[in-house]
């Protein structure tokens, strides 16, 4: 049933992302056609933020419609378990996140290639590596793996937080102003989680004036993230399974 529901979720969301990617592709083509390097950085910075913001809006709107809108009556009467519902929502959004990154990288690569061939791509990669090193990342292979794993887990944590908030306000504990309460609850829970995580996460060791995380510290950070995800998943599951009120 997971695959069936995933298929339904894919068709439900693909139109929005299709339009978004078409817009970015058109922007890329116009940058290439006008052949003016100066606005490239500005345009792409703008496009990156637009892409990111639209992705977040689409994710929130997917959860919001699924629980707040009339569509909730469809989703929650389908013969799927709460686990299937939650896992499908997470998987489809992670899929779109990867697609968005792939589209962005492809478009950026196309512009840089059109500007000065492969040399430009190499220069940009060196610039990227330099910036990452400045940000304190030691570019050893295992660190990159930790970095990407942490990044994906942060995204899943964000998805679950949205799902948790949407389901929590559809219980007997929140009768009025549900959407406003959802926004307030999001920031409150987010603040509490971040405070706890920053308190218990390792800060690393001081090397040459800056803190560097060791492999062990990175593993502990990932475990803490996984614990946060487990807490959010269990709470959301509880609300959806035992307290839900689709009015």
């Amino acid at each position: 049933m997971l695959m069936t529901f995933l298929k339904h979720e894919f068709f439900s969301t693909s139109r929005k992302f299709g339009i978004l990617y078409l817009g970015i592709a058109l922007l890329t083509i116009s940058v290439i056609v006008f052949d003016d390097f100066e606005p490239i950085v500005a345009t792409f910075t703008l496009a990156f933020f637009a892409c990111f913001v639209l992705l977040i809006i689409t994710i929130i709107s997917t959860f919001e419609k699924s629980i707040f809108g009339p569509q909730a009556q469809l989703d929650f009467t389908l013969p799927i378990s709460t686990h299937t519902y939650l896992i499908a929502k997470i998987l489809i959004n992670v899929f779109w996140l990867f697609c968005s990154i792939a589209v962005f990288v492809a478009c950026l690569g196309a512009i840089l290639y059109a500007q000065n061939g492969f040399a430009m791509l190499g220069e940009f990669y060196q610039f990227f590596v330099f910036e990452m090193q400045n940000a304190g990342f030691v570019l050893r292979t295992e660190h990159w793996i930790f970095f990407y794993a942490s990044w994906i887990l942060s995204f899943v944590q964000f998805l679950l937080l949205i799902s948790f908030v949407c389901s929590a306000v559809h219980t007997r504990y929140f009768r009025k102003n549900k959407k406003v309460m959802a926004v307030v609850l999001y920031f409150v829970v987010s603040f509490i989680f971040n405070a706890i995580i920053s308190m218990i996460s390792p800060s690393g060791v001081l090397v040459d004036g800056s803190y560097v995380l060791r492999n062990g510290d990175l593993v502990i950070s990932l475990i803490i993230q996984l614990c946060a995800i487990a807490v959010l998943y269990a709470s959301t599951y509880y609300f959806l399974n035992y307290e839900l009120e689709i009015e």
Partner: peptide, 10 residues
């Protein structure tokens, strides 16, 4: 009807 259909769990 919503209780019977599983839309109201509490």
């Amino acid at each position: 009807l919503k209780i019977l259909s599983g839309l109201l769990m509490n």
